[in-house]
């Protein structure tokens, strides 16, 4: 997936000379996860460069550049480091088009690795997507595989609105179903690891059905898509797994069609429970599918604690927990 993300930036930088890439360790070295490796060598230091350690500064200068007419695609090294730049995102990036009545816009992408599963502790594991979805004016994307990552990132860079692009870091090197004790599967042995050369997009705002089923709908995104698939396979429950891909704008049609068909819904995310994106999804399902529901909506999420280190797998909503929720919803 790292290569797919890099390729998306490479393709975008070739097609549009206004696309620029920068962040901490992003230039010469190519990023701590290597997502920008080779871009500076290929496009020069005016197009891809290292910045001071200042997330506020990275996002802040990106706003000015976007207002000038560039299309910055910046990297925050970990989503956990985003908070110093959060005011620039919320108060500036998100509202610039609105407050200037379209006179100034900020077509920029803020990429950041998200989620746990790598023993990163509380400062390298967070999933702050709800903090962005809550802000009017932003689009928030979470890809789950290399094909989508490339197509969604190109679409995000070409979008005229600001896009928060959260990359589940546990998926960088292969799909991960939550069985941390099993050997890592590389993307080369997975269907969605196939990434076409050149330019293509995956439209923002469209979900994908990863596994068709008739008994229960599972709403997931990022790493949890694979966890949900594993839970369905292991419990033998005929679950329909929907990969939301874009959290805002969300694909209500796909969600509603599926829940109306199955009559049951389980929502899975790695982020903490309370006030999480799952709460919004549950509200939407309730509003639009109430008369189709045959069981209460269930949520399987990280616990409402900071992301722990040694207890990572107790925190992580793995296939066993998702499986229990599936069974409970089926028996309700």
């Amino acid at each position: 997936m790292v290569e797919a993300i890099r390729d998306a930036m490479d393709v975008s930088m070739q097609r549009d000379e206004n696309v620029v890439v920068f962040g901490e360790d992003v230039g010469y070295f190519g990023g701590v996860f290597r997502c920008t490796q080779g871009l500076q060598q290929k496009f020069g230091t005016s197009r891809c460069f290292d910045t001071p350690i200042s997330e506020l500064g990275i996002v802040g200068v990106a706003v000015g550049m976007a207002a000038y007419g560039l299309r910055p695609c910046v990297e925050i090294q970990f989503a956990d480091y985003m908070y110093p730049g959060y005011d620039q995102i919320v108060s500036e990036v998100a509202r610039l088009r609105y407050r200037s009545n379209g006179e100034f816009t900020a077509p920029l992408v803020v990429r950041m690795p998200t989620g746990g599963g790598i023993f990163g502790g509380q400062t390298h594991s967070q999933s702050p997507e709800a903090l962005f979805v809550h802000v009017a004016g932003l689009k928030t994307v979470v890809p789950s595989n290399p094909y989508d990552a490339k197509g969604l990132l190109i679409a995000a860079i070409e979008d005229n609105d600001p896009v928060i692009f959260l990359e589940p870091k546990r998926l960088y090197n292969g799909p991960f179903d939550g069985h941390h004790d099993r050997p890592v599967t590389p993307w080369s042995r997975h269907a969605q690891g196939e990434v076409p050369d050149g330019h293509y997009t995956v439209p923002l705002g469209k979900a994908a059905i990863r596994r068709e089923g008739a008994a229960v709908t599972v709403l997931a995104y990022g790493t949890m898509v694979f966890v949900a698939e594993a839970a369905a396979a292991e419990t033998g429950i005929d679950a329909e797994v929907i990969d939301l891909r874009t959290l805002l704008p969300y694909d209500l049609e796909t969600i509603v069609a599926s829940v109306q068909k199955t009559g049951r819904c389980v929502i899975v995310h790695e982020a903490t429970l309370t006030g999480g994106y799952g709460a919004e999804l549950a509200a939407l399902v309730q509003e639009h599918c109430f008369y189709s529901l045959e069981a209460p909506i269930a949520r399987v999420t990280g616990w409402d604690t900071p992301y722990p280190h040694a207890q990572e797998w107790d925190y992580f909503p793995g296939p066993a927990r998702v499986g229990r929720a599936l069974k409970a919803v089926m028996e309700a």
Partner: peptide
Amino acid sequence: VQAVGWAMAS
């Protein structure tokens, strides 16, 4: 800081 970014872009 946005002014600085605009100037950098120029």
